[in-house]
């Protein structure tokens, strides 16, 4: 039930911010379309803890702030190496062990790796992740496990 309410609030906010007209007719049409979407989503059986991860809400903001700081640092590094040219980079590919148990934790970790410029998660099999990095240093810092530890803290 709380997942349906969460989806309703999200859709209503999306609709209200996109529309900008607040007459009774338009509002009722918007409400009807939201209810239609809810019925369809309910029949498709996609409204659950996976599509509406409410249990993450408390901790995710701190993680996002840390991730933004990390993205800015990685951007500065990559831009520096773009202007230094192809002699200064050391592209490398490696399998990395991950310690997350749930699917959601694994997805958050792989997505964070890809979102940080300089490292891309290519494939995720069981508890190993194949990472391509622009610099070998990046893979070493991933193996040191700072991001891994923070995502594992997030999932419980």
């Amino acid at each position: 039930m709380k997942h349906i309410i969460s989806l309703f609030v999200t859709l209503a906010a999306f609709w209200l911010l996109n529309s900008g007209h607040y007459s009774v007719l338009i509002l009722s049409l918007g409400f009807a379309s939201i209810v239609l979407i809810l019925v369809i989503a309910r029949k498709m059986d996609v409204v659950d803890h996976e599509s509406q991860p409410l249990y993450l809400t408390r901790k995710i903001f701190g993680y996002h702030l840390w991730l933004i700081k990390e993205i800015i640092q990685a951007n500065i590094t990559v831009v520096k190496h773009i202007w230094l040219g192809k002699k200064s980079i050391s592209p490398s590919l490696k399998k990395i062990k991950i310690s997350q148990q749930t699917d959601m934790g694994k997805v958050i970790y792989a997505n964070s790796i890809t979102l940080t410029p300089g490292t891309v998660a290519i494939d995720l099999v069981e508890d190993e992740i194949i990472v391509h990095a622009l610099l070998y240093k990046d893979i070493e810092s991933l193996e040191a496990g700072e991001m891994d530890r923070r995502v594992t803290l997030l999932e419980r």
Partner: peptide
């Protein structure tokens, strides 16, 4: 965009596109 032109192979070019997509 400069990195997209300068880097040697596909996987490294992808990192250059990552810069424009995020920050």
């Amino acid at each position: 965009a400069i990195g997209l032109l300068r880097f040697p192979d596909f996987y490294t070019r992808m990192h250059a596109v990552g810069v424009t997509d995020t920050l």
